[in-house]
Nucleic acid binder design. Structure first.
Length: 670
DNA sequence: AGCACGCCGACT
DNA sequence: GTCGGCGTGCTC
C-alpha cells in the first residue's frame, strides 16, 4: 500500500497515529452534523489518515455511510460507548485538507447549516480512473516548471504590490479599459491586473485562488494568466467541466506546487498549499450567491478563508458592492484605485421622447442616434438591452392591458419575428388572441428583446452586420470592424480595440425593476459595459438621470455605494445589518424565533403565510449573528429529530414543512 | 434517512 | 398471558 507521505501529496503523517478516527459524514441531515468516533482496525491502520474518504457503519451492521476522516486521536472524548470500527478506506488520497475542513465548519456555522453540505461543494465526486492515473503520475514525481518572474502590476505604482506582499485586505477599483495581450486576444484590463497580482503570488512561492462570476470572465482571466505563467501553474476548477476534468483539476490543487486556481464561486473552497492571495472579481454579481444549502455567498466564504489563512484578499470590480463598501467603512478593507483615473466618456441623454419619434427610433434619443451613426464608421457599436428574445412582453394594442394566456393566465410574448404569441409559463400558442377587456385583436410590443432590437437597428443601418449576444447565444469576442452588437446586460462581448460607442438602451426599464438592490445592479451592468468602450468613445445612458447617472458619468461608484449603504442603514436592510429568513411550520418557526428574539438589536418581521407554512425575517447586528446562527441551528436540529410521518389512515395528510433558516437570503431584498 | 426500541389493543 | 401496531429517538 502506498502512503501519501512517499509521494508528497499527503498531509505529513503524525508522529504517532491515533487509534480512533474522527469522521465527518457526507449527509445533509442536521442531526448528523458532528464528528463521529470510530475505532481504526489494525488492517486499516496505514491508510486511515486524516482527509481520506471512508465508509463507516451507522447504527446497525450492514448500513454504511460515507464520510471523511477529519483527525485521528488516541482516545475518544465525549463519547463513552463502545466504538464501531471503520468499515473501509475508500481511497488513499487525503482529499479533505485541514484548511478546507476548518473553512467548511466555520462557513456552515455562520450560515446555520451543515458542514457536509459545504464539503459537497468543496470536494467533487470521486472518479476512480482519473484518480488512479493521477496517483501513478504523482509517484513518478513529474517535472515542475521553474517559478515565474514577478511582473509589475501596471497602473497602480507600487502601492498594490506592496499591499499584496503584506497580505492585506483590499477593495480594488479596476481600470475600465480593454487591452490586447501578446497572444493577440483582447481582454478587460481587470483581467491583466489580477493576472499580474496572481503571478507575483506564485513567484513568491504561494498559491492564488481567483474567483470570477462565469466562464466568460474565466476565459478572459485565463488568457491573461497565460501571458505570465506556464500551463502547469494554472488550474481551472469550473463546475461546468465534465466530472473527470473537474476531479483531475481538484487533485492537482492538492499538490505542493504553488499555482493559480481559477474558477467560479465554488473555487473559494479549493484546497491550496500555502494560500497567498484570494481574489473575487465583481463581487456584486448575483452568481456569487450559492443556490445550494446552506447558501453561503462566495464573498462570505472568502472573508472566512482570509481570516483563517492570513492570505491577501482582493475584492475587485468596476463598481463597489454595498457589502464591500461596508467592509471599507469599518476599516476591514483598504480601498485602492489606479494611480491615474481613467473614466469612460459618459453621455447622459434626457428621457427619450417617445411622443414624436418615429417607430424605428422610439427607444433611441436623437443624440444617441447621432453618436452611434458617427461611431459605426470606425468600429463596432455595443447596444445593451434589458431582455433576450424578440418581444418578451406584449399588450393589447387597443386598451394596453397586459396580454395573458387563456389556459394559465401567464404573460404572453412573441418568441421570434413573425411568430404567433405564446405563453411564457406554459408555452401554449395564443393564435387568434382576443383581448378579454376590449375585444381588440391587435398586440403591441411593450418591450423589445435582443431580436427585435437587432431587426430595428439592422434596418436603420443597412449594410452593417448585426450580432446578437444573449443568454442563449453568447458571443465572447468581436472584431474591431463596423458592426452592431446587441447584447443583454452581462452578455457583452469584448471588442478588439474597444467599442466605438456604447448605447445603454434600456437603462430606464432596467431601473424600474422592483428590487431594493436594483440601483447597485444597474450601476454594475452599465459600468461593466462602459469599461468595454475604447478610450474617448461615447457611452450613452438613456432615460436615467439623478445620482445613478451622475455616479456613472463621474465614475464615482464607491461614493454611490457609500450613499446606498447609508440608506440601507437607515432602513435596517442588508448589508447594513445581517438578515435571515426563517420558514416552516408555524409552531416550529415561533419556537425558533423565541430563541433569538431577545438578542440585543434583533428585530423580526412577520411571520407571514408562505408556501406550506410561514416565513419570518430576522434582522441582526453583525456582532449577534453568530450567536443567532448557533441558536437557530439548535432549533433546526430539534425540529428534524422530532418531525414525524403521517398518522395512519389519514389520506392526503401532508407532513409539516421542515424548519429552514437561510442567512443572507437574497429574496429579503426583493 | 433508516432502523431499533417501547408501550397499548386483539389474539391463541 | 404475548404478538405486533406504529410513535419516538438515536446514529460513534
Amino acid at each position: 500500500m502506498t502512503t501519501g507521505a512517499a509521494t508528497g501529496w499527503a498531509t505529513p503523517a503524525p508522529a504517532r497515529r491515533g487509534t480512533t478516527a474522527r469522521v465527518v459524514l457526507d449527509s445533509p441531515l442536521p442531526q448528523l452534523d458532528h464528528l463521529f468516533d470510530y475505532r481504526i482496525p489494525d488492517g486499516l491502520a496505514a491508510e486511515a489518515i486524516p482527509g481520506v474518504r471512508v465508509t463507516v457503519p451507522l447504527r446497525s451492521a450492514g448500513r454504511v455511510a460515507r464520510g471523511y476522516i477529519v483527525e485521528t486521536v488516541d482516545a475518544s472524548d465525549g463519547f463513552d460507548g463502545e466504538l464501531s470500527p471503520l468499515d473501509s478506506v475508500v481511497s488513499a488520497v487525503p482529499v479533505l485538507t485541514p484548511e478546507v475542513w476548518a473553512l467548511a465548519r466555520k462557513a456552515a456555522d455562520r450560515a446555520a447549516g451543515g458542514a457536509g453540505d459545504i464539503l459537497r461543494l468543496a470536494i467533487p465526486p470521486r472518479q476512480v480512473r482519473v484518480e488512479k492515473v493521477w496517483q501513478r503520475a504523482q509517484e513518478e514525481s513529474p517535472a515542475v516548471s521553474s517559478p515565474p518572474d514577478a511582473p509589475e502590476i501596471d497602473g497602480y505604482g507600487s502601492a498594490l504590490a506592496d499591499l499584496l506582499a503584506g497580505h492585506q485586505r483590499i477593495a480594488l477599483d479596476v481600470i475600465p479599459q480593454v487591452v490586447q495581450l501578446e497572444s493577440g486576444t483582447w481582454v478587460g484590463r481587470w483581467a491583466v491586473t489580477i493576472a499580474q497580482a496572481a503571478a507575483r503570488t506564485v513567484a513568491a512561492g504561494e498559491t492564488a485562488i481567483l474567483v470570477v462570476p462565469d466562464y466568460r470572465d474565466s476565459d478572459q482571466l485565463f488568457a491573461a494568466l497565460s501571458e505570465y505563467l506556464p500551463p502547469d501553474r494554472i488550474t481551472r476548477v469550473d463546475a461546468s467541466q465534465p466530472n473527470a476534468d473537474r476531479y483531475r483539476a481538484f487533485l492537482d490543487c492538492l499538490t505542493d506546487i504553488p499555482r493559480v486556481i481559477l474558477g467560479n464561486r465554488s473555487a473559494v473552497y479549493a484546497p491550496a498549499k500555502s494560500l497567498g492571495l484570494l481574489t473575487i472579481f465583481d463581487d456584486g454579481d448575483p452568481l456569487y450567491s450559492e443556490p445550494l444549502a446552506p447558501y453561503v455567498h462566495a464573498r462570505d466564504a472568502a472573508l472566512i478563508r482570509q481570516q483563517q489563512s492570513g492570505a491577501a484578499l482582493v475584492l475587485a470590480g468596476h463598481t463597489r458592492s454595498a457589502d464591500a463598501q461596508r467592509l471599507v467603512d469599518i476599516g476591514w478593507l483598504d480601498a485602492i484605485g489606479p494611480e491615474r483615473a481613467k473614466a469612460p466618456r459618459v453621455v447622459i441623454t434626457a428621457k427619450a421622447d417617445h411622443e414624436d419619434a418615429v417607430a424605428v427610433t422610439a427607444r433611441i434619443p436623437s443624440m444617441a442616434w447621432r453618436l452611434a451613426k458617427e461611431a459605426i464608421a470606425s468600429g463596432p457599436v455595443l447596444v445593451q438591452v434589458a431582455r433576450p428574445g424578440y418581444a418578451p412582453v406584449v399588450a393589447c394594442g387597443t386598451c394596453a392591458s397586459a396580454a395573458r394566456c387563456r389556459t394559465c393566465a401567464g404573460p404572453l410574448r412573441i418568441a421570434s419575428a413573425g411568430a404567433a404569441p405564446s405563453c411564457t409559463l406554459c408555452g401554449a400558442i395564443a393564435a387568434g388572441w382576443v383581448c378579454p377587456t376590449c375585444e381588440g385583436t391587435k398586440l403591441r410590443l411593450v418591450t423589445r428583446g435582443t431580436g427585435r432590437t437587432a431587426e430595428e437597428l439592422g434596418r436603420a443601418f443597412p449594410g452593417v452586420p448585426v450580432l446578437i449576444s444573449d443568454g442563449e447565444r453568447q458571443v465572447t469576442a468581436v472584431e474591431g470592424k463596423p458592426a452592431l452588437v446587441i447584447a443583454t446586460r452581462g452578455a457583452e462581448p469584448v471588442a478588439a480595440g474597444g467599442y466605438a460607442a456604447v448605447l445603454l438602451l434600456d437603462a430606464g426599464r432596467m431601473l424600474a425593476a422592483e428590487h431594493l438592490r436594483i440601483g447597485e445592479d444597474c450601476l454594475r451592468w452599465w459600468s461593466n459595459a462602459a469599461a468595454l468602450a475604447r478610450p474617448g468613445a461615447p457611452v450613452v445612458l438613456t432615460g436615467v438621470t439623478g445620482d445613478l447617472a451622475r455616479a456613472l458619468a463621474t465614475w464615482t461608484q464607491p461614493a454611490f455605494a457609500h450613499a446606498e449603504l447609508l440608506d440601507r442603514r437607515a432602513l435596517r436592510f442588508p448589508p447594513a445589518v445581517r438578515a435571515a429568513s426563517v420558514s416552516g411550520d408555524a409552531a416550529a418557526v415561533a419556537e425558533a424565533l423565541a430563541e433569538v428574539r431577545d438578542l440585543p438589536g434583533a428585530s423580526i418581521l412577520g411571520p407571514t403565510p408562505a408556501d406550506d407554512g410561514v416565513r419570518a425575517i430576522l434582522r441582526l447586528d453583525y456582532g449577534q449573528a453568530g450567536e443567532a446562527a448557533r441558536l437557530l441551528r439548535g432549533a433546526v436540529v430539534r425540529n428534524a429529530t422530532k418531525r414525524r410521518k403521517a398518522p395512519q389512515g389519514k389520506a392526503g395528510y401532508r407532513p409539516p414543512p421542515t424548519l429552514k433558516v437561510r442567512f443572507d437570503d437574497p429574496e429579503i431584498l426583493s
